[in-house]
């Protein structure tokens, strides 16, 4: 059971976080906080360590320096099971390549976080269908990912990331695979849905245009994390 300290005003807190692969430090002395409901964009070139930072926050990799607190829980001290439990309850993920499961319908894909949190299949599917309707795909719940356009797949991925009402959504280049027009629609929807649920968003991107939806922007480079 993960105990969460009360009264912490930040959903995410990074202090002096560092990560190295062999002798090379890809992240050094990264510090930032994220308040509930805040939208933050993390800019940086390819290889700057943006995706690595998301993995550290999610507990998928361990930092080599510093501390990470997610919803008041020190992620860097958790074992694999506890880390998975925290991800299930607190985080939503959205990826550039959507990562939808090809043999499952859109509704089943969206229902996955609910099923993993122990909610029964019929209720999970009903709630998945509701969120699909909110992202404009109410009629496509039975469709397989291969039957959907890129923009529709992106919306299914957004619905999956939000269906369990996570406190923090981590988005990794969420519009990287979309054409500019579809990307604009997807970004508006992302901001609207995240704000509407009172969730926080940490989005890594190399696109200044995508970062424009954020309340605050940072750039990750050789000098660490600096306001952009």
């Amino acid at each position: 059971m993960i105990e969460r300290p009360r009264g912490d005003s930040h959903i995410l807190s990074l202090r002096g976080v560092g990560k190295r692969y062999g002798p090379r430090w890809v992240l050094r002395d990264v510090a930032m906080t994220l308040a509930p409901g805040e939208l933050v964009a993390l800019l940086g070139e390819s290889g700057a360590g943006k995706s690595t930072l998301l993995n550290l926050i999610a507990g998928l990799e361990a930092p080599d320096a510093g501390e990470i607190e997610l919803a008041g829980v020190p992620v860097h001290t958790l074992d694999a099971d506890a880390s998975a439990g925290l991800r299930r309850s607190t985080l939503g993920f959205q990826f550039q390549a959507f990562h939808l499961i090809a043999h499952m319908s859109a509704a089943h894909n969206v229902a996955i976080p609910l099923l993993l949190n122990g909610i029964g299949q019929s209720e999970a599917l009903a709630r998945a269908q509701e969120v699909l309707a909110q992202v404009g795909l109410g009629e496509r719940g039975a469709s397989l990912p291969s039957e959907l356009s890129g923009g529709e797949q992106q919306r299914v991925a957004l619905a999956r990331a939000l269906v369990h009402r996570p406190a923090l959504l981590l988005a990794d280049e969420p519009t990287g695979n979309l054409d500019p027009v579809t990307a604009d629609v997807a970004l508006s929807l992302l901001a609207e849905q995240v704000r509407g649920r009172g969730a926080a968003l940490l989005m890594v991107t190399h696109s200044e245009h995508a970062a424009a939806i954020a309340d605050r922007r940072f750039r990750l480079g050789p000098d660490g994390l600096v306001p952009a």
């Binding site: 998928l60 990826f95 939808l100």
Partner: peptide
């Protein structure tokens, strides 16, 4: 990718 998506959502290895 599908395994990654599930793992990131906190799924156990058996799931």
């Amino acid at each position: 990718a599908p395994a990654r998506a599930l793992r990131d959502n906190g799924a156990s290895e058996s799931a």
